[in-house]
Simulated scan of single mutants.
Amino acid sequence: MTRLVELHTRIDTRVATIRSDAPDWLCGKGCAKCCRSLAQIPQLTAKEWDLLQEGLTTLTPEHLAEIHERVKALAGQSARPFVCPLLDQATNACPVYAQRPVACRTYGFYVQRELGLYCGDIEAQVADGTLAEVVWGNHDVIDQSLAGLGEVRPLTEWFALGNSGSAG
Results as ranks from 00 to 15, higher is better:
L51D: 07
T156E: 03
H8A: 13
L38C: 10
Q53R: 14
G168K: 03
I41G: 06
L56D: 14
V152K: 12
A167L: 09
I18N: 00
F159Y: 15
A127H: 01
G165M: 11
G28L: 06
A65F: 05
T45M: 03
L44I: 09
W158N: 08
V96I: 09
Q144C: 03
G168R: 08
A124K: 13
A124E: 12
Y110K: 00
A22S: 08
Y110M: 01
E157H: 07
T130V: 10
L87T: 07
I142G: 00
G108R: 05
L86C: 09
G129M: 11
T57R: 15
Y110P: 00
D128N: 13
Q144W: 08
A73Y: 04
L86Q: 08
W136K: 04
F109N: 01
L56Y: 13
S78R: 06
G168E: 07
R105S: 01
W136G: 03
L131Q: 00
Y118L: 09
T156R: 08
I122W: 00
A16C: 07
K33W: 06
R100M: 04
V83Y: 04
V15R: 13
G165E: 14
R36Y: 02
T45G: 02
V141G: 05
I67D: 05
V15A: 08
A75V: 05
L64T: 11
Q99A: 09
F109L: 02
C34I: 08
P154T: 11
L161E: 13
R105Q: 03
V111Q: 04
I18Q: 00
L7Q: 11
L59F: 12
Y97A: 11
A65N: 10
D121N: 13
W136P: 02
G148H: 11
V141P: 01
A75H: 08
I41T: 12
H8W: 10
V5D: 15
A79R: 13
R3A: 15
D128G: 01
T2A: 15
Q99H: 12
L161M: 15
L4P: 00
E151G: 04
A124M: 06
R153W: 04
A98N: 07
T130D: 03
L38N: 13
W25Y: 14
L44C: 04
D24K: 03
N163M: 12
H63A: 13
Q77T: 08
L56C: 14
A167M: 06
I142C: 00
C27G: 12
A39M: 11
V135S: 09
V141W: 12
A147R: 10
V83C: 14
T45R: 02
W158K: 07
R19K: 15
L149I: 08
T17H: 05
D128Y: 00
S37T: 13
C35E: 07
S166A: 15
R19L: 13
L86K: 11
D21S: 15
G168A: 10
A39W: 02
T45C: 03
A65C: 03
Q99M: 04
F82Q: 14
Q53Y: 12
H63M: 10
E114Q: 10
F82D: 14
W136A: 05
P42K: 10
G150D: 04
T9P: 00
P81C: 10
E62T: 14
G120N: 11
L26M: 10
S20V: 08
H68V: 09
A98P: 03
G28N: 07
V5K: 14
L7S: 09
S164L: 14
A147M: 01
D24W: 02
Q43Y: 02
G129F: 11
L74S: 10
A39K: 11
V71D: 10
G162D: 15
C34V: 04
